[in-house]
Design a binder for these strands. Sequence first.
DNA 1: TGTGAAACCAGCAGCTA
DNA 2: TAGCTGCTGGTTTCACA
Lengths: 158, 158
Amino acid sequence: MPDADLDALDQAILSRLQVDSRTIAESIGAQVGLSAAAVQRRIKRLRETGVIAKEVAVVEPKAVGAHMTFVVSVEMERERIEVLEAFRKQVLTDGAVQQCYYVTGSADFVLVVVCRDMTEFEAFTRRMFFDNGEVRHFTTSVVMDRVKVGLTVPLNGG
Amino acid sequence: MPDADLDALDQAILSRLQVDSRTIAESIGAQVGLSAAAVQRRIKRLRETGVIAKEVAVVEPKAVGAHMTFVVSVEMERERIEVLEAFRKQVLTDGAVQQCYYVTGSADFVLVVVCRDMTEFEAFTRRMFFDNGEVRHFTTSVVMDRVKVGLTVPLNGG
DNA sequence: TGTGAAACCAGCAGCTA
DNA sequence: TAGCTGCTGGTTTCACA
């Protein structure tokens, strides 16, 4: 559902909801010059058309004992479609993988991985890379600071 | 606020809210064996203690014309604290930067950047890298597929 | 815009560790 | 005692006409 052409009002609504999805319609309406009901109608439409993909709670990793984050670049042995597909599936089912991007360049995949500690990360690398004959090489970067973390998308009128 | 020791009930609640923050308390309660009021109390506490950092709407990038995603590794000229701090600030204010991690290894920062098209990305690299004398080198990977994108944190009882 | 339904929130009492 | 539960009434927010 690409480009569900959104007017400035929709964009203003989205820019609020991207920051705080609990903002009540009345408050948004006051800001953008719309009645609460009108705002709710637009939000409903944004949900139905898939512009708003989902609404989620963001959990502070440290608060649940997930103290370490890693950025891992992965290079596959061969770029056969089956190999890539199998790796995709593995990634999707593994809870430690927060994000995975299939990219151009020297690496094939870039992963963001969240673990309790180094031991857990080692277990992760074993099940994901060493036990997988199709992984040629991987490079780990330890995250020292999560400078900016979000899924916010730039909106022209944002 | 590290390790606000959460029991299995809290974890079960979080695992639902991480996927869909609009899940109503009654539904969660039915699943975990708790009254709606009790669930609401716990959610409130999780918000107040910062375990739930925020609740956000996730916007489908393509739906708002953001068709391209990039993973960019950045190496700074010198690792002086001022230089790093200045870069941090720039990152935080730039809407195209969705995520930024300060990492160990050959790169200093890893960015996830979202743009409408290549032209916009070129403008981004100019203002962020070329106009910044402290950036020694950067490497761009174009994202072909966002295999897995989220901020979900693994919960032991998840 | 307004009305009905639904979800959330605060106060109270009882139970358990 | 402290903390948590379930219950209930009052309020806010939402959804639909």
